[in-house]
Amino acid sequence: MSGPASAMLEIRGLRHDYAGRTVLAVPAWDVARGDASLVLGPSGSGKTTLLNVIAGLATPTAGTVRVAGADVTRLTPAQRDAYRARNVGLVLQTLHLIGVVSVRENLRLAQHLAGAAIDDRRIDEVLSSLAISGLAGARARDISVGEAQRVAIARAVVNRPALILADEPTSALDDANCEKALALLLEQAAACGATLLVATHDNRIRGRFDRRLEL
């Protein structure tokens, strides 16, 4: 385990209750800066809840979640929105993109909501690194599932986040695409020096990660 100085994520005594039932319990878990870790568990084991808590989308019942030293659970709602926009890139299983606008506009929205200036050169750079430059002008609802998954990865990394959280990023994909998406995710996280957390029940990708948290 890494020391506190280089820890990107430090979880202590985390518990989340829902409808009188404990849906998530993580006594202690540390993730070092730049690491790629897997959160494993069957459906309903609290994987999504854990990612939501880390992303500042949900407040846990008890415990602390420090991201780069700051306790996310203590932030005000407005601070959490700002923290999430600047530091977290999210990739979700099926919820990829805003369908009514173009791929480029989806990435611009991510930049805009993060409070960053619109940077089309960065967008082009990310799209080309994922080999989907040709999709920039396409309306997001018109592209295929595999393409959308790549665009979702592009959007997660476009702001160079410190933390990339991926929730079941591969379970909607076939074996070939699963392998490709995972490789891209790891590659992109490494390219921007981000810490990567992948929550999944997909056994196909277990072997690609050294560090795991079993829920």
Partner: peptide, 16 residues
């Protein structure tokens, strides 16, 4: 509603 949730994950404020 999923689009709205997605916008929140991107950091959109409820007011937005």
């Amino acid at each position: 509603r999923y689009d709205l949730a997605l916008l929140r994950t991107l950091g959109a404020r409820p007011a937005s």
